[in-house]
Amino acid sequence: VQTVGQWLESIGLPQYENHLMANGFDNVQFMGSNVMEDQDLLEIGILNSGHRQRILQAIQLL
């Protein structure tokens, strides 16, 4: 089972590990259960829309 940090590294966005972990997104399986939306990522400080889309697309593959 991948950690959130390993998963972010695999999609090329390791800089957001602290954003996700500090806001309770600390379990890759949980994130894959379709609980995260674009607005959630924006609210936790991921401002780059391309990065948000990449995260959301990768979540669909979990």
Score class of each variant (00 low, 15 high):
residue 61 L to A: 15
residue 51 H to K: 02
residue 49 S to A: 14
residue 7 W to N: 05
residue 3 T to Y: 04
residue 34 N to P: 09
residue 45 G to H: 04
residue 55 I to M: 10
residue 23 N to L: 13
residue 44 I to H: 00
residue 20 L to G: 03
residue 52 R to P: 02
residue 18 N to S: 14
residue 26 D to C: 10
residue 25 F to E: 03
residue 11 I to W: 01
residue 35 V to S: 13
residue 22 A to V: 09
residue 16 Y to S: 03
residue 27 N to L: 13
residue 49 S to Y: 12
residue 9 E to R: 09
residue 60 Q to I: 11
residue 54 R to G: 03
residue 9 E to N: 12
residue 42 L to Q: 14
residue 30 F to M: 15
residue 28 V to D: 06
residue 37 E to T: 13
residue 29 Q to L: 11
residue 39 Q to F: 06
residue 6 Q to K: 13
residue 62 L to M: 07
residue 18 N to F: 11
residue 43 E to T: 10
residue 42 L to D: 04
residue 7 W to S: 02
residue 23 N to H: 11
residue 6 Q to D: 15
residue 11 I to R: 02
residue 38 D to P: 05
residue 5 G to D: 05
residue 20 L to A: 00
residue 37 E to S: 14
residue 61 L to P: 07
residue 2 Q to S: 12
residue 61 L to T: 13
residue 22 A to T: 11
residue 3 T to M: 04
residue 47 L to P: 06
residue 50 G to S: 06
residue 12 G to W: 00
residue 33 S to W: 08
residue 43 E to A: 13
residue 44 I to T: 05
residue 36 M to R: 12
residue 18 N to L: 09
residue 11 I to L: 10
residue 5 G to T: 07
residue 47 L to A: 12
residue 9 E to M: 10
residue 11 I to Q: 00
residue 6 Q to Y: 05
residue 36 M to T: 14
residue 30 F to L: 15
residue 22 A to W: 06
residue 25 F to Y: 13
residue 39 Q to W: 07
residue 25 F to W: 12
residue 11 I to N: 02
residue 28 V to H: 05
residue 41 L to H: 03
residue 9 E to Q: 08
residue 18 N to E: 15
residue 1 V to I: 13
residue 38 D to I: 00
residue 61 L to Y: 10
residue 11 I to P: 01
residue 21 M to S: 07
residue 41 L to T: 00
residue 2 Q to A: 08
residue 62 L to H: 05
residue 38 D to R: 03
residue 19 H to Y: 09
residue 21 M to N: 06
residue 7 W to L: 09
residue 36 M to H: 12
residue 8 L to T: 01
residue 59 I to L: 14
residue 41 L to N: 03
residue 26 D to H: 09
residue 50 G to L: 05
residue 12 G to N: 05
residue 18 N to I: 12
residue 2 Q to R: 11
residue 36 M to D: 06
residue 48 N to H: 12
residue 46 I to G: 03
residue 30 F to S: 15
residue 31 M to A: 09
residue 60 Q to K: 15
residue 13 L to V: 04
residue 17 E to L: 08
residue 50 G to V: 09
residue 3 T to G: 08
residue 56 L to C: 06
residue 14 P to Q: 08
residue 7 W to C: 02
residue 17 E to C: 09
residue 40 D to M: 09
residue 19 H to F: 08
residue 6 Q to F: 04
residue 55 I to L: 11
residue 53 Q to P: 00
residue 31 M to N: 07
residue 43 E to S: 13
residue 39 Q to V: 09
residue 9 E to H: 13
residue 40 D to K: 11
residue 17 E to D: 05
residue 22 A to I: 08
residue 2 Q to L: 11
residue 20 L to W: 00
residue 13 L to P: 00
residue 48 N to F: 03
residue 52 R to L: 01
residue 58 A to L: 02
residue 19 H to P: 06
residue 3 T to F: 02
residue 4 V to C: 05
residue 43 E to V: 07
residue 36 M to Q: 10
residue 41 L to D: 02
residue 53 Q to E: 12
residue 14 P to A: 08
residue 20 L to F: 15
residue 57 Q to F: 07
residue 26 D to L: 09
residue 2 Q to V: 11
residue 29 Q to Y: 10
residue 9 E to P: 02
residue 47 L to F: 12
residue 22 A to E: 12
residue 46 I to E: 03
residue 59 I to D: 03
residue 39 Q to P: 06
residue 31 M to L: 15
residue 19 H to I: 15
residue 24 G to R: 04
residue 52 R to Q: 00
residue 32 G to S: 14
residue 47 L to M: 14
residue 2 Q to T: 10
residue 15 Q to P: 00
residue 48 N to Y: 05
residue 55 I to K: 01
residue 2 Q to H: 10
residue 44 I to G: 02
residue 37 E to G: 12
residue 54 R to E: 07
residue 1 V to E: 06
residue 27 N to C: 10
residue 44 I to C: 11
residue 56 L to T: 05
residue 8 L to H: 00
residue 48 N to L: 03
residue 16 Y to W: 03
residue 23 N to Q: 07
residue 54 R to P: 01
residue 4 V to H: 01
residue 2 Q to E: 09
residue 48 N to D: 15
residue 59 I to F: 12
residue 10 S to A: 10
residue 59 I to E: 04
residue 56 L to K: 05
residue 46 I to P: 02
residue 5 G to E: 06
residue 53 Q to S: 11
residue 62 L to I: 08
residue 41 L to S: 03
residue 11 I to D: 03
residue 37 E to L: 11
residue 5 G to I: 08
residue 9 E to W: 07
residue 25 F to N: 04
residue 20 L to K: 01
residue 8 L to Y: 00
residue 30 F to D: 15
residue 42 L to G: 01
residue 18 N to M: 12
residue 23 N to S: 11
residue 35 V to Y: 08
residue 43 E to P: 00
residue 52 R to W: 04
residue 27 N to A: 08
residue 51 H to E: 05
residue 47 L to C: 11
residue 4 V to A: 03
residue 6 Q to W: 04
residue 5 G to R: 14
residue 16 Y to C: 03
residue 23 N to F: 08
residue 58 A to N: 09
residue 11 I to V: 06
residue 26 D to Q: 10
residue 53 Q to C: 09
residue 14 P to L: 06
residue 19 H to S: 11
residue 35 V to W: 06
residue 18 N to A: 13
residue 22 A to G: 08
residue 46 I to L: 02
residue 16 Y to E: 01
residue 7 W to V: 05
residue 22 A to Y: 07
residue 39 Q to D: 13
residue 17 E to A: 10
residue 20 L to T: 01
residue 40 D to Y: 07
residue 22 A to M: 12
residue 14 P to W: 02
residue 40 D to R: 10
residue 24 G to T: 00
residue 13 L to A: 01
residue 51 H to F: 00
residue 18 N to C: 09
residue 28 V to F: 09
